[in-house]
Structures are given as C-alpha cells and as structure tokens.
Amino acid sequence: MILQAIAFYLMASVTILAGLAVVFARNPVHSVLFLITAFFSAAGLFVLMGAEFLAMLLVVVYVGAVAVLFLFVVMMLDVDFTQLREGFSRYLPIGGAVAGLLTLEMIVVATTVASQGAASASPGPNASAGADVTNAEAIGRVLYTDYVYFFQAAGLVLLVAMIGAIVLTLRHKPGVKRQNIAAQTARTPATGMTIVDIKPGEGISE
C-alpha cells in the first residue's frame, strides 16, 4: 500500500503544480507543455484507481492528438504578451466570478459524493460488477447495450462537428495546380509529345 500512497501523492502534486503552472507560465508554449504534464499525471492517477482503459484513452486522445494540435497552433501564434496583460484588471471580476462558481460547484459535488456516495444511475441489466471482467470489457458491456443511444448520439454530434469544420474551411481555389495521378500515369508518348518539323531559320511560332 505504501508504494501506492507514494505514487498517489507524487502524481497528485505533479498534477496540481502543473495545473498552476499552466496558468502562471509566461510563455504559452510552456503552458501547453505543463497542460500535457497535467494530463499525463492525471492518467497515472486513473491507473492507480484501476481504470487503466480510461487512462490509456486519456493519453492517446488528449495527449497524443488534441494536445499536439494545441501545441501546433500555439507555436505558430505570435502573441504580444504585454498587450494581453493590459486587460488583466478589467477581466479580473468576471474571470474571478466564473472561477468562484466552478469552485463552489466542485465543493458541492465533492461533499455530496463524500457523504452520500455517487448517485446510483441505476446500472442496467448488462452492467456486471464481476472482478474478472477487465474494465475495457465492463465499459463496452454497458456502452453498447444500456447506453447505446447516448453513445450513437454522441457519435452523431461529433460527425456533425467534423463535417461542419470541413465545410467551413473547404475552399476550392481556382488556379491551384494539383497532381492528377490517373491522368499522369495514363499519358503516352502519343498524347504527351508532338513532333514538329522546323524549317531552318524559322523557329516555332505559337
């Protein structure tokens, strides 16, 4: 147990410190890197709780794909930080209000769960609490049976978002040269070349 405790305190403190550093880092690239550290140690906390499937998904999806794109964008931005800092006092009240509200909500949820346990969302007939079921299998059993409509709806929302992003950014620019591989490989000497008989001293007009 002592190893678990050490690992927990290590990863929990890294998560919190990295979270603070995300906000306080001066360089946005450093912020994103701290965010990645926070994701990563949060995944470690999931593993400690025995939710290794969720942990790996967190790493693959957030750290491996989403955060890479964050980093990608932030690295290419040329942000003027002194200008950003100017509005600090102006935005402080509204930002503080949002942060306070979120903290309040989290305290309420945490105390409720601590005193009454997590709300029992009436686990369906397919949910199994067997110890021999790996947690990927346990998630799959409820996700594709009891919650299949929610799952499909989430998928549809993502699909709409994806198509929306493509529609918003798709532009057919005229005059862009693209490679047409079929046309290129179908070229023969007959279609790709002409033989012209040039008379001496005349050159080719056209």
Partner: peptide, 24 residues
Amino acid sequence: VNVGILYLLAMSSLGVYGIIMGGW
C-alpha cells in the same frame, strides 16, 4: 497490463513531442 496494446499505441503516439519540442 490489461490494455497493453493501448499503452504501446499511447507511447508511440507521444514520440511526436520530442520532435516538436526539439524543433520549436
């Protein structure tokens, strides 16, 4: 690990960070 294969996928997908950070 029960999700060993996902772990491998995760580690290989994280390899990109070394390159991006080095390049930047």
